[in-house]
Write a protein that binds this DNA or RNA. Structure first.
Length: 413
DNA sequence: GCTTCCGACTGGACCACACGCTTGC
DNA sequence: GGGCAAGCGTGTGGTCCAGTCGGAA
């Protein structure tokens, strides 16, 4: 990744494709992601104009630059003079949007039409932002975040807002909803009450629809090679972060755990001012609900983090750490732009059993049909394997008898 | 409650060979 | 130190199969 498009190697890269982990110019973005239905689903966003390495997280209206979380924090931290800059979250998109469409997504976006118009223009009807219209609205939603006297963030929704937040693959949280303005200094993002919630599921803490798509376990890349460190022993939070677990957890490496067992009912809560809010009861419900939702083998990934006294829990394994350990944690600045949906729960739970069973059905169906994306290291080898003839799934010598030809699946000999 | 059976599910192995990488000159 | 050739090891996808698990009898 870098300043130049990873695909053509000529044009300056403009967008970042999370699925491909590639920086692309608009032209290549369109050509690459118009190749097939799957590639069209790749979620892309602008590239950070400062480091040119990470997907953009916010757009600084004052400076006119798109920034990743790190650069945003560095440039707009409380200690900087730019901390009052008004910033707008950057949407992700999928499909093959035209320049006009991109402009509608990103009001600040302007690009020579010729550079954007593509062969798949006619397919704009299939275009979506954030892949799922249910979770993304085209309308401009102005969520504002401000800090109240207690130092906790308040999120104001103008209207129905899909305010979920997701964990992206490169230490960035994918803000799925429409633009949101961050009026508070970036540095205080650490101090915000931060939660991950999934309003549309009605189930606090259970991102049923997002368990895989948005939580994107394949790409978050929690490196669980050291399983023992994470689960086998009482894990100290600080250990986890100090030995690279921070990156592993929050972004730069892949979560390669047995995906089906990693369901992201996650809560991240942070506050640096005043007494900490106790983890809301709903959080614990997240686990219980999830355990209800997921039958037997499904465990819950339940994470809580507080700045001054972090607790960490993986299905019951918890660890403690002191403040500071998590200062550099990528998640420390994670924001959730949305009304916490960890709504108070009644004794019987927050939802009727019919709704629950319906959700269970949808969850299981989705789990059933889910495909685990595999990271292909060598596209050329994949291309070759894609066209190689096989016998019972095994490659055969060139010219040999075969029973399956990927190029002509109906033909066999 | 215990055992057995059966279906569903999971993960690893297998295959050929182009290509990336290392080594030696 | 750079360039080149040779050789080795890796990775790719569809299918099969052994092992595991859970539910039913």
């Amino acid at each position: 990744m870098g300043y130049i498009c990873d695909f053509c190697g000529e044009q300056p890269s403009v967008v970042y494709c999370q699925s491909d982990a590639a920086c692309l110019c608009l032209s290549c973005d369109q050509s690459v992601h118009s190749a097939n239905a799957l590639s069209k689903r790749h979620s892309r966003t602008l590239l950070c104009e400062r480091c040119n390495l990470q997907p953009a997280f916010v757009r600084c209206a004052e400076e006119g630059v798109s920034l990743c979380q790190n650069c945003d924090l560095m440039g707009h931290g409380t200690s900087t003079s730019n901390s009052t800059h008004k910033r707008q979250t950057v949407n992700t998109y999928s499909g093959c949007p035209s320049s006009a469409e991109l402009s509608s997504i990103w009001s600040f976006f302007s690009q020579s039409p010729s550079a954007v118009e593509s062969t798949c223009e006619q397919e704009l009807g299939q275009m979506s932002i954030n892949e799922n219209m249910e979770r993304t609205s085209w309308c401009r939603i102005e969520n504002t975040i401000s800090q109240n006297d207690t130092g906790l963030a308040e999120v104001n929704h103008d209207h129905n807002v899909d305010s979920r937040s997701t964990w992206g693959g490169s230490s960035i949280m994918q803000l799925g909803s429409a633009p949101q303005f961050l009026d508070q200094p970036a540095g205080t993002t650490d101090t915000l009450l931060t939660k991950l919630s999934c309003p549309q599921t009605k189930y606090p803490g259970v991102c049923e629809d997002d368990l895989y798509d948005d939580f994107n376990m394949d790409e978050i890349d929690l490196n669980l090679e050291k399983y023992e460190e994470l689960f086998g022993v009482a894990l100290n939070h600080s250990e986890l972060f100090e030995n690279g677990g921070t990156d592993s957890l929050f972004g730069t490496k892949h979560m390669s755990a047995t995906d089906s067992n990693c369901q992201g009912a996650m809560v991240a809560e942070g506050s640096s001012r005043g007494p900490l809010n106790a983890i809301q009861p709903a959080c614990s419900n997240a686990a219980s609900i999830d355990s209800k939702l997921s039958s037997k083998t499904d465990s819950v990934l339940y994470f809580t983090a507080r700045q001054d006294h972090s607790s960490f829990s993986f299905s019951g394994f918890t660890g403690e750490s002191s403040r500071g350990d998590y200062q550099d944690c990528g998640a420390s600045s994670m924001l959730l732009m949305g009304e916490p949906s960890w709504c108070p729960l009644s004794a019987e739970g927050p939802f009727p059993s019919a709704t629950r069973s319906d959700a269970v059905m949808r969850y299981k169906e989705k789990k059933k049909t889910r495909k685990f994306e595999k990271q292909v290291r060598y596209a050329s080898r994949k291309a070759r394997a894609d066209v190689r003839k096989r016998v019972k799934g095994r490659f055969v010598k060139a010219g040999g008898a075969y029973d399956y030809d990927p190029l002509n699946p109906t033909r066999s000999c």
